[in-house]
Simulated assay, not measured.
Amino acid sequence: MKFAAISDVHVKIAGDNAENLLLAFLRNPDVQSSDVIFLLGDIFDLMIGPHTQYFVRFQAYFDEIKKLIKSGKHICYVEGNHDFHIRELYRKFFLVNSELDASLFSMATHFEFFDGGKKIYLAHGDDIELNNPSYKLFKAVVTSPPLRYYANYLMPHFLIKGIGEYSAEKSRKRNNKRYSTEADLTPIKDNFRLSAEVFFKKHPCQMIVLGHSHVKDHYTSASGFEYVNNGYAQHTKTYISIENGDVSFKPV
């Protein structure tokens, strides 16, 4: 089998560099030749709740999803920490596009596949990450039932859009500064390798594919597994390709 995976694209507004990169990924002939396409969270910088305005704001993205499903491709989506409480959004998407086979679009906290004799675990990565208690608290709050209810039924779209537009420029400057020094990234890389090692002891598999860290890595453990992370897609401009159990980074 053949898989393609990307995460941490952080599309802020239609037509920005991140959306162009995401569309290039979805239109890539090599990606389109894959059996399964994985979107492993933080595809959008702020997408919360089931607001149908997203279908208009990000029409090009949803058009590509429609084309892929019509061609028989299976798409697997893992919510991240910037795009969450969106299951109802995709339920509406398939109601509006009733001609599509909804069984070809899956959402889960993680996915497990076997390929080339290897068990492959794919997730966003925040649930595996160690040594980040403040983030764990944040995630527990935003995924709690009261916040889920607010996001699905009470939170207005204009509020999300306004927050996203306000934070877009600050986020761009912060990320450009953050990823300019390799030494600053080493502790993050080491922590995610440690997180993968600890996870492997409880959930044995031959390959762990994650996002979230924004640090690109392909680590082969002495314990007998590979940990793979595509990093911050706008900087790496790559995606993860897995074919017959062999993994590689390919340009978008």
Score class of each variant (00 low, 15 high):
residue 2 K to E: 04
residue 2 K to Y: 05
residue 7 S to V: 08
residue 8 D to W: 11
residue 14 A to E: 06
residue 14 A to N: 12
residue 18 A to Q: 14
residue 20 N to C: 02
residue 26 L to D: 01
residue 27 R to T: 06
residue 28 N to I: 04
residue 30 D to I: 06
residue 30 D to H: 03
residue 33 S to H: 04
residue 34 S to K: 00
residue 41 G to R: 11
residue 49 G to P: 10
residue 55 F to D: 05
residue 57 R to F: 04
residue 60 A to F: 01
residue 60 A to V: 01
residue 61 Y to L: 02
residue 63 D to T: 10
residue 65 I to V: 13
residue 70 K to L: 13
residue 70 K to C: 05
residue 75 I to R: 08
residue 76 C to M: 13
residue 76 C to Y: 11
residue 78 V to Q: 14
residue 79 E to H: 12
residue 80 G to A: 09
residue 82 H to Y: 01
residue 89 L to A: 04
residue 93 F to S: 01
residue 104 L to Y: 10
residue 104 L to V: 04
residue 105 F to S: 04
residue 110 H to I: 01
residue 113 F to T: 09
residue 114 F to Y: 11
residue 116 G to D: 03
residue 118 K to P: 13
residue 120 I to Q: 04
residue 122 L to A: 13
residue 128 I to R: 12
residue 129 E to H: 00
residue 132 N to Y: 04
residue 134 S to Y: 04
residue 134 S to L: 02
residue 135 Y to N: 07
residue 138 F to Q: 11
residue 141 V to C: 07
residue 142 V to E: 10
residue 143 T to C: 09
residue 144 S to E: 10
residue 148 R to M: 09
residue 149 Y to E: 08
residue 149 Y to H: 11
residue 153 Y to F: 14
residue 153 Y to Q: 12
residue 154 L to N: 03
residue 157 H to T: 04
residue 158 F to E: 14
residue 162 G to K: 14
residue 174 R to A: 15
residue 179 Y to L: 15
residue 181 T to H: 12
residue 181 T to S: 12
residue 181 T to Y: 11
residue 181 T to E: 14
residue 184 D to C: 03
residue 186 T to F: 05
residue 188 I to R: 05
residue 192 F to T: 04
residue 193 R to S: 00
residue 201 K to A: 14
residue 202 K to E: 15
residue 203 H to C: 07
residue 204 P to F: 11
residue 204 P to G: 10
residue 204 P to A: 08
residue 207 M to C: 12
residue 214 H to A: 15
residue 215 V to W: 01
residue 217 D to L: 06
residue 225 F to P: 07
residue 226 E to L: 13
residue 229 N to G: 11
residue 232 Y to C: 11
residue 233 A to Q: 00
residue 237 K to F: 07
residue 239 Y to V: 01
residue 244 N to H: 12
residue 245 G to L: 08
residue 246 D to P: 00
residue 249 F to W: 05
residue 251 P to M: 03
